[in-house]
Design a protein around this nucleic acid. Structure first.
Length: 660
DNA sequence: GGTAACGCACAT
DNA sequence: ATGTGCGTTACC
């Protein structure tokens, strides 16, 4: 396997630290390589430009050139080469020019994209099947990205090789593709940035996840002995009542003044609970049978569940014998009925209440499940519910959930939220009994004039007494961090090993992203096969080594045989980084303060009536957008700060934090 | 007051 | 892989 030197200058193949004369730096990515460990050393060292194996990107199998387009657009690559060959420039100047080129700051001799996001949107990175930007992107081991639907269609037709480079697709990925949600977010950002023309207000979406994490749940002395599982009494950070319907808004988030946004993730049910998205720490349904259900969790607990992202079929609770101290009985032994939680969900169906949805990584059969932890996916409505005979032979309650949120779902690259959509065809309805459909107008509905979902009638009054207000002790007010959306996004591109921004990102078939050097470093010294000793004069066949993905337990040994860098993600990350550098160059901290002041001054002080009116009009999200837009255009910290914050922040599901 | 509910981590 | 303690909420 071809491996470069690590950040300390040590060759990852032979583990030695080669001298400068033994080191060769790539002309494109500047990574150092040990000359004598290169699989194909350059023919002549007098060449001014040499490309490392990563940047030459030899396809896994020999494919005709027409089938393997270069990862960068040709003109961009040749422009970079042109800079590198210029002997009049110092290395620093070359680096600056490369950055400028990637960020569109300077016109190279060769035509180049005028904006970094154009690199993404100029068609180079389109799904090779539908020739559009990948929707719900999935990444093959050979580093190519496709729409989930296109990929599934291709596999269904019996085609098991990459439509881009013809590399074989592993069976597991073919049967269970996982969405690369980090990439989905990037594509959305690029689209958003492009629509930010000089005319019209810039439109910015929220990409915030994993930041400003709360203190870990409170643990009693007794509970500490057995770990966090017993720490269910963590502080609730939001000021909504336990039976609050609908989105959790900034006004209910006194600490951050942000609310719970689509895409927010939590490490576990305890943490999710602390932010009010889904209160019960065991149950899948939060609700009261005479009042309605506020939220549900998709955790893979019921085999009948069926997830299509924007809509899904949910199974009610109960039907199992959990007497004694059973926790894990997945077998049904009696029928489910519309009572308790199941009835609560039926009330929400009849009324058309908004129901918050969180998805758990435990839902293994869904392509829409997050890679780890729990994720808030927004507001859905229960359009119909019924009962049917479940796969285990007993009756189950069934609910058709359809998404109706003003923010786009985490897996889409759409810039806007949902529009009313026709109900999907549900085959099992023909065998349904006890069908319930909504008869009245839904309480939460789409307003054509305003172009968003909102309460058509005032939300139901909370049944909880005022004790929550009194009981909620407001923590010492932390100043909300001024971080631009782009910097937040950069944070999201963290390697799950080094926690820094991804460099040469590899996407595993299980949908996790790592720096190339980090992932290969994690398995350096391990060979792919283990030779077993001869026994009784008989030579045993070599055994394959299992190499577990650092983020999950999937075996990625096959992937590591020839991991291909996800060039699409890499170019987006580079664009974002060079923008951050550029902006930090021409705006000092002092300027930032001035700009902040200007923004604040220009904003009229909101009277409480105005605020109320905005809430009633349901336009709070667009107000948020405007707020973020000013952030993007005005506030930029230095990129060093970003990196520092990334180090400080546990941005990537610190599941193994305790063991570290 | 009893118990079910799509949890979590540890012990066996 | 299965069992168990701790934990919270809803609803008898």
């Amino acid at each position: 396997m071809a491996l470069p030197c690590d950040c300390e200058g040590q060759c990852m193949v032979c583990k030695e630290k080669p001298s400068p004369s033994e080191t060769l730096s790539c002309g494109t990515c500047a990574t150092p390589w040990h000359l004598s460990c290169l699989p194909q050393p350059p023919l002549s060292l007098s060449d001014t430009h040499w490309d490392c194996p990563d940047c030459t990107q030899t396809p896994v199998t020999a494919a005709p050139p027409s089938l393997a387009p270069p990862p960068f657009s040709n003109h961009l690559l040749s422009a970079i080469r042109h800079i590198q060959a210029d002997t009049s420039l110092t290395d620093q100047q070359k680096a600056n020019k490369r950055q400028q080129l990637l960020s569109g700051g300077v016109s190279a001799d060769q035509p180049s994209p005028s904006n970094p996001t154009d690199v993404l949107l100029d068609g180079t990175f389109n799904c090779s099947i539908c020739v559009h930007l990948p929707d719900r992107p999935v990444t093959t081991p050979c580093g190519h990205n496709f729409c989930l639907k296109c990929f599934q269609k291709m596999v269904a037709q019996g085609n098991r090789s990459c439509a881009n480079c013809r590399s074989p697709i592993p069976r597991k990925m073919a049967s269970q593709p996982r969405i690369n949600s980090q990439l989905a977010m990037a594509i959305r950002l690029a689209k958003t940035a492009q629509s930010d023309g000089p005319s019209g207000p810039p439109k910015v979406q929220h990409f915030v996840r994993n930041q400003d994490r709360p203190a870990t749940a409170f643990t009693t002395e007794r509970a500490k002995k057995t770990g966090k599982a017993n720490a269910c009494s963590g502080k609730i950070f939001v000021t909504v009542a336990q039976d609050h319907f609908g989105p959790i808004l900034a006004e209910n988030d006194p600490d951050r003044n942000r609310g719970v946004l689509v895409g927010d993730t939590w490490e576990d049910r305890m943490e999710c609970r602390q932010w009010g998205a889904h209160l019960p720490h065991v149950s899948g349904i939060a609700g009261q049978s005479h009042y309605g259900a506020q939220s549900v969790a998709l955790s893979g607990g019921y085999v009948d569940d069926e997830d299509h992202g924007e809509w899904f079929l949910y199974t009610g609770s109960g039907g199992r014998d959990l007497s004694g101290n059973k926790r894990t009985n997945k077998n049904q032994s009696f029928d489910q009925k519309f009572e308790l939680h199941n009835e609560a969900l039926r009330v929400s169906c009849r009324k058309g209440y908004p129901v918050r949805v969180v998805r758990s990584h435990k839902e293994k059969r869904s392509s829409y499940a997050p890679e780890s932890g729990l994720r808030y996916d927004g507001i859905y409505r229960v359009e119909k519910c019924w009962r049917k005979i479940g796969v285990q032979g007993w009756k189950v309650c069934r609910y058709l959930f359809v998404r109706c949120d003003n923010e786009p779902a985490p897996w889409t690259s759409d810039e806007s939220g949902d529009r009313p959509r026709p109900l999907p065809q549900v085959d099992e309805l023909k065998d349904a009994v006890d069908l319930t459909e909504r008869k009245c107008d839904p309480w939460w509905d789409y307003d054509g004039e305003k172009g968003c979902w909102l309460w058509k009638r005032p939300p139901p009054e909370t049944q909880i007494k005022a004790e929550l207000k009194d009981g909620t002790t407001v923590r010492g007010k932390r100043k909300a961090k001024d971080v631009s959306v782009k910097q937040r996004l950069l944070k999201e591109f963290g390697c799950q090993i080094c926690r820094k921004v991804l460099s040469f990102p590899l996407t595993t078939p299980c949908g996790h992203n790592f720096c190339k050097a980090c992932l290969e470093g994690a398995f350096s010294g391990q060979s792919f096969v283990r030779n077993r000793e001869c026994k009784g004069g008989r030579t045993l066949r070599a055994q394959k080594t299992v190499m577990k993905c650092p983020s999950c337990s999937n075996d990625i040994a096959d992937f590591l045989q020839n991991p291909q860098v996800n060039r699409e993600m890499m170019s987006i990350i580079e664009s974002l980084q060079s923008e951050a550098y550029e902006q930090s160059d021409d705006s000092s901290d002092k300027n930032n303060e001035n700009l902040n002041g200007a923004v604040d001054d220009s904003k009229p002080t909101d009277s409480s009536e105005e605020v109320l009116e905005e809430i009633n009009d349901g336009e709070e999200s667009s107000d948020e957008n405007l707020h973020d837009a000013t952030e993007v255009s005005k506030i930029v910290d230095s990129s060093e700060k970003v990196l520092e914050e990334i180090k400080d922040n546990d941005l990537n599901q610190p599941h193994k934090r305790k063991k570290d």
